[in-house]
Amino acid sequence: MDLTILNAVVAVVIAIAFAAANAAYLVLAERRGAGRIQRRPGPNVNLFGILQPPLDGIKLMTKQLVIPGGADKALFLVAPILAMAPAITSFVTIPFSDTIVAHSMNIGVLMIFAFASLGSFAILLAGWGSRNKYSVMASVRAVSQHIAYEIPMLITVTTIVMMTGTMNLKELALSQSGGILHWHIIPSLSSPLMPVSFLIFFICSLAETNRAPFDLAEAESELVAGFHTEYGSMGFGLFFMGEYAHIVIGASLITILFLGGWGCPLGLYPGVWWFLLKVYLLIFSFIWIRWTFPRTTVYGLLNLSWKILIPISLFNLLLTAGLLKVF
């Protein structure tokens, strides 16, 4: 077999393995983090709970997948896979550093969004397929939420693409090389509102990944468990891992778009460790936010998107377009 293909395959496998491992161990990190915030240890039995995710996995896998009587069998079974697979697949295009990238596409950003849009489809199918009133309500909520938050997210990305002139994630990251002052989060002459954009993008990725305070789709205090109420066994496990894979992708995307990718803040020694550091810091903040805030309401969520995020991001887009012409 040709060496290049081997490389590509290995890279893809590594990317997928990274996503899966992350998804599994982020559950642990989340529980530990939540524990620390609430001043309790969290799962800590065997060496800081290092065996917890595999054991959880074994537990989930050995359980019976119960399909509810009235459920739509096909949709019910397809939905968890549809939730997990696209999330992991989009890892292929994420560059971890200059050289470590499974496949650098010139439309990387677009691809991630395209695959992320499958996620909401999965939730819709899961809710519909379960034939549970709570699940249907949750999936309707989830989809309206996804639609509402994809718009400001894409507008923000458009702003950045406009500035850099590329949709290739690698080139996007490279365009910010050379220290913290070149990062997109720092306001520049052509785009003075960049920190706001960062905030908008961050909020949107919280919403896109169904994380608290936007976890309306699985609002356990009103909709029991939302769209995965009826799921047990590995069906639930796939949803769970899909959620965390989405989180990793969201954090990676923020890192690449705003935080200089694998670049060091001082412009020295860029490398994959910087990328991972930033990603995990962002993931920590995801966890931190989740365990701090209560949940928003449905209309509060939509109001936030349509009345605050979209107007501001549109304004930012126009401002940046104008300023790019000037400078």
């Binding site: 849009s117 819709l124 989809v143």
Partner: peptide, 22 residues
């Protein structure tokens, strides 16, 4: 046309299909 491929996913799968499901 990878661009169109992605747009197809984004618009058709992510938007049109969901709208019809709605």
């Amino acid at each position: 046309s990878p661009f169109l491929a992605m747009m197809q996913m984004l618009i058709y799968v992510g938007a049109v299909c969901i709208t019809i499901s709605f």
